[in-house]
Amino acid sequence: MQSDILTVVVDRYDPEREKVPRPVTYRVPRQEGMVVADVLLYLYEHDAPDLGFLWECRTRRCGTCAMRVNGHPVLTCSEPVREHMRLSPLEGLPVVRDLIVDRQELQARLAPWAAEALEGLPKDARILLEPGEIAHYRALSECIDCFICDSVCPALAENANGGAQFAGPRRLIRLEAQVQRRAEPLPWLLYAAESNPSLCTRCFACTEECPRELRPAEAIGSLTKRLYERHELDAHKTSHISSFLRSILRAAWLDEFRLLVDIYGVVGVAKFIPQALRMLRRGKLPKPHFGQAAQSTDIQTILRGMDKRS
């Protein structure tokens, strides 16, 4: 039996006044078919007039209502309620107030390249797609900027630790769409190269969580491949991919020793000796393989097939 009252814990937070979020419990009368956004509107009209949350379109088009329900990122406009809920803002993004995260200024969000010098670029020139390509293009271009993919991206979270900056799935899927349609895609491809798509860890969390079922992880893979083919990746990354492919095509297993030599050169590999000794001591050094892996023809056929398809 469903109860008539829902218990909702909301992480209230004003970063200008408080150090950490403060969970507040509310009770909300349940209605048939209720979605989480109904709960937020009820709280706004009754118990919490100052509750910070955003909504606009009501139908998965604007992306502003994304937040976490019991830790899981969702669009509240179409998320059914549950008996016990904890509402908190998306993870990994600066919180503006309560359930609102910083979605950035429109230009940074939508067309960051517009800030760069675009003089003389063919702005209106687009290629017309074949009917078969249209669905694929739409699957790249229908992003609603809900920021869910960025919020679950471990590579993006690493940015805070310094080093090369990863642009994140949200920006990269947008760039891949540009590259697909622009008659002269080079400027967008170069822009993509600066976004370090190769830092993607291939965890697919973005693709799994996308509320519109887009595939940012695949788009990042495609961008990386384009950059590799155009030799626009840095030397390390290019050698890494080339060596990886050679290894699989030759014997269907990954020769990690060869990989290191290909990337860093025979001399360069010397710096890995202490690490290798540590790994050896803990029994973590990969054992060398020889000859072909089991089912090697199958693996190689798949790889060649993938290459042709993409």
Binding site: C57, R61, C62, E105, L106, Q107, L110, A111, W113, A114, L118, K123, I134, R138, S141, E142, I144
Partner: peptide
């Protein structure tokens, strides 16, 4: 038909920004 219309709006916004317009949300 064919485009989700939020997408038409997004593409126009992108195009306006590329032309130098400022958009305040």
């Amino acid at each position: 038909e064919g485009e989700v219309n939020s997408n038409v709006q997004k593409i126009l916004a992108q195009r306006s920004l590329e032309c130098g317009a400022r958009i305040h949300e």
